[in-house]
Amino acid sequence: MAANNSVQTTTPRGSSLPNRNSQRSTLLKVVILGDGGVGKSCLMNRFVSNHFDEHSFHTIGVEFLNKDIEINGEAYTLQIWDTAGQERFKTLRTPFYRGSDICLLTYAVDDRASFRNLALWRSEFLYYADVEEGSTFPFIVVGNKVDVPESEKQVPTEEARAWCAENGDPPLVETSAKDATNVEAAFGAAVAAWARLEAKLDRPLIEDTVDLSKQQSPHRSSCCMPGTESNKVI
């Protein structure tokens, strides 16, 4: 039940034929958060279409793209929601947090403020996604713009690592959407982190099926899953 919204079959777009042999792939909702201007949209575009636009605009509210990837032999379809970082978009973006499977917290290595705000982003996400503080959720911290000269770098990797260690130890990936450094890796790490957590959560389920309370992964938004209830009834 826990994964009933995340596993869907997806078939390649455009084929009107049913393809019975299509791979079952896991559908994951990914949300990218971070200050305005740290390069969230660029990350997404680099990842999805391997394209980089030097002069991209502010994102309006949210943007959405799909991407199929394979991690450790498993097929995944990532539904990536890119959000607008500006404060004025806050009410517009927060409704999209609910039901996310993965959250990318991004900062720019040449922007200290964006790094400092990670904590705010993290708590905003937890609040609006209705995830309990302290529960394990697959966050991943992405330091973008590593292509800048060393002199302009304001957030040392060690510091970022230290922050992660103190905040639930999410994986840290330093990327550059501009020269495509580590972008795939970042998303890959995110999915891997999700898979690890999922495996952990599934294990007690197998071992101890009597305990119904564990059937729902705690990080999932229980609100949107009324089905669990009624299914129990049936």
Partner: peptide
């Protein structure tokens, strides 16, 4: 902008 996002 709001309309767009809400519709999404």
């Amino acid at each position: 902008e709001g309309s767009y996002t809400f519709i999404a």
